[in-house]
Design a protein around this nucleic acid. Structure first.
Length: 552
DNA sequence: GTGAATGAAAG
DNA sequence: CTTTCATTCAC
């Protein structure tokens, strides 16, 4: 098949020869999701990527991922004049969805943690950010991976027929230039650059690389802005240069495949001991404390104190979150017609509505009355394929809007709220009324205490198989009879019926079996409406009937 | 099936 | 140019 110019495929696809359906500008199927009243769809968040994340890079975790999806992919046909790295592009050009790193990088640069004075060159910044990226604790990285999933889902929704066509542009250029080819040139450039280089330029590169490593290390230590600049200046002036060399070595060791143990990571964190002034002195964190706080692998209650080191001792980065939902995101969505009569709101009073344009399918086949465990697998497949498969990340709630750090405001709300202040009278130990999220605290219902579901714990229950072809990636673990949606860990568990609940308010609930019950999916029996609920709200609303039904 | 190539952001 | 990652393409 001849190469197709990527950007022309979508709007002018009369010549499309790949059998793809003609471009439809985000056909809005008007699927409706419903929410609890205190949930906010993430699409309602103000997450303009051009707006720096509030509070962001504090301590020294990166900002909450800024919502890329909505604003970065403006209304259809407006892809238009988006300019990617200064290149003028055809108005109809559709850029690729960003991956986790690109989102992270963008947010990093927006946040201006590294002053222009320190480093303004984006190539160098990429190096620094790449190093820093590798030090991110798993939980932090997962947030960005989740963000990437959202961006991909948004992109997919907005451009259902878009496909990544690598080489399309290069080939177009090749035609014009009639040279050896962009691709070949690119590779050969890289190789020649590396192989060439006399001793002196090698030395230069080495010191440049050391500088990048140092900046990354300083960032890991939490230094940003003027403080970073100061610490770097100290280092460059020779103070601690010796140490810096050690640090550089440590860092490089980390890059070589994450070898080395826990112990080596922080070995050389020293420039912080030299303060530029009293103000900066205050922010110096004792090395010992730093070590302990960053090596604490215990449950991080508030999610802010994640382990971080330069030489990750385990395999925590070997299975990226996105890999669990791996599928061809650029492949056209499976178009499923939804009868109009199914497109209406059905979940009532204590839900608010939000629309989504995700395509959807007939409602769940899950029995509304019973769900015997011996039939569980088949049922859950049906359920997930028919209903959960269309659970959009967009139904997820925002944060609490209570001034919490940005990280609590990520669309996945992966860590829940930061403060256990809003206790429900009926739910001792349950903190987060507004947060239908994975709660960072143990939750007790009656005699049963749900373990705190960390992201790491959720990841540990990662799915075995992946099925594609739905609007959103769904996985199914036949071993544990649990399932996952794109919202990893939120949808696995048993499908239970709720006869006790007033219909059609809640018909089915998915309880997270691995982690307890903080995350629940619900949907209406009458349409494709899907909502995400919180155990507390159900408990609050329906008292013990809910938990009684589980034998709690 | 594997590895190379591309391109997503930025200036 | 430079990073990482996802995706596609050429063997």
């Amino acid at each position: 098949m001849p190469a197709i110019r990527e950007h022309e495929l979508y709007l002018n696809d009369v010549d499309d020869d790949d059998g793809m359906p003609p471009l439809v500008d985000n056909p809005n199927s008007s699927m409706t999701f419903t929410f609890f009243t205190d949930m906010t769809p993430i699409t309602a968040l103000s997450l303009d990527p051009t707006v720096p994340c509030e509070s962001s890079w504090d301590n020294p975790a990166p900002a909450s991922p800024v919502d890329f999806a909505e604003s970065e992919y403006p209304a259809t046909n407006q892809t238009a004049d988006r300019v990617s790295h200064g290149k003028k592009r055809d108005a109809s050009y559709i850029p690729r969805p960003p991956n986790a790193f690109i989102l992270f990088r963008s947010s990093f640069i927006r946040s201006q943690q590294v002053p222009e004075k320190v480093e303004g060159n984006h190539s160098t910044l990429s190096k620094i950010i790449g190093k820093y990226w590798k030090t991110l604790p798993r939980e932090e990285r997962e947030i960005w991976e989740a963000k990437a999933l959202v961006a991909q889902a948004e992109h997919r929704k907005r451009y259902p027929d878009w496909r990544f066509r690598p080489g399309a542009n290069a080939l177009a250029k090749l035609k014009v230039k009639d040279g050896p080819g962009i691709a070949n040139r690119r590779r050969s450039n890289q190789s020649t650059k590396k192989s060439r280089g006399d001793a002196e330029s090698k030395k230069k590169n080495k010191s440049k690389d050391e500088r990048c490593s140092m900046i990354a290390d300083l960032l890991v230590e939490g230094k940003t802005g003027a403080e970073l600049e100061c610490a770097l200046r100290n280092w460059e002036n020779g103070i601690g240069r010796e140490v810096g060399a050690v640090k550089g070595a440590v860092n490089r060791e980390g890059e070589d495949g994450f070898e080395g143990g826990d112990e080596g990571g922080w070995g050389g964190a020293l420039p912080s001991t030299i303060a530029c002034d009293h103000h900066h002195m205050e922010s110096v964190q004792p090395l010992e404390d730093l070590y302990h706080s960053t090596h604490n692998t215990e449950l991080n209650i508030d999610g802010r104190d994640q382990p971080r080191c330069k030489t990750p001792p385990d395999d925590r980065f070997k299975v990226p979150l996105t890999a669990m939902f791996k599928r061809s995101l650029s492949a056209p969505a499976t178009h499923v017609d939804v009868p109009d009569h199914r497109r209406h709101n059905s979940i009532a009073s204590n839900f608010s509505d939000v629309t989504s344009d995700a395509a959807s399918s007939p409602p769940s086949l899950c029995s509304p009355s019973t769900f015997p465990s011996d039939q569980y697998e088949d049922h859950s497949i049906a359920v997930y394929n028919d209903s959960m498969g269309h659970l959009s990340p967009l139904v997820l709630p925002s944060g609490l809007g209570d001034g919490s750090p940005a990280r609590w405001n990520d669309p996945y709300n992966l860590f829940g709220a930061p403060s256990p202040t809003a206790l429900l009278p009926n739910c001792p130990g349950l903190s987060y009324v507004n947060s239908p999220s994975v709660s960072p605290v143990d939750m007790s219902f009656g005699n049963y205490t749900f373990p705190s579901p960390t992201l790491a714990a959720l990841t540990a229950t990662k799915p075995q198989n992946i099925s594609a072809g739905l609007d959103y990636p769904i996985t199914y673990d036949t071993q544990s009879y649990s399932s996952y949606s794109a919202l990893k860990g939120w949808a696995d568990g048993q499908c239970a019926s709720f006869d006790t609940l007033p219909e059609p308010l809640v018909q089915h609930v998915f309880v997270n079996q691995h982690t307890g019950a903080p995350a629940i999916y619900e949907w209406s029996p009458f349409d494709d409406t899907v909502c995400v609920g919180h155990a507390s709200q159900l408990h609050n609303a329906f008292e013990s009937s809910y938990f009684d039904s589980f034998g709690y």
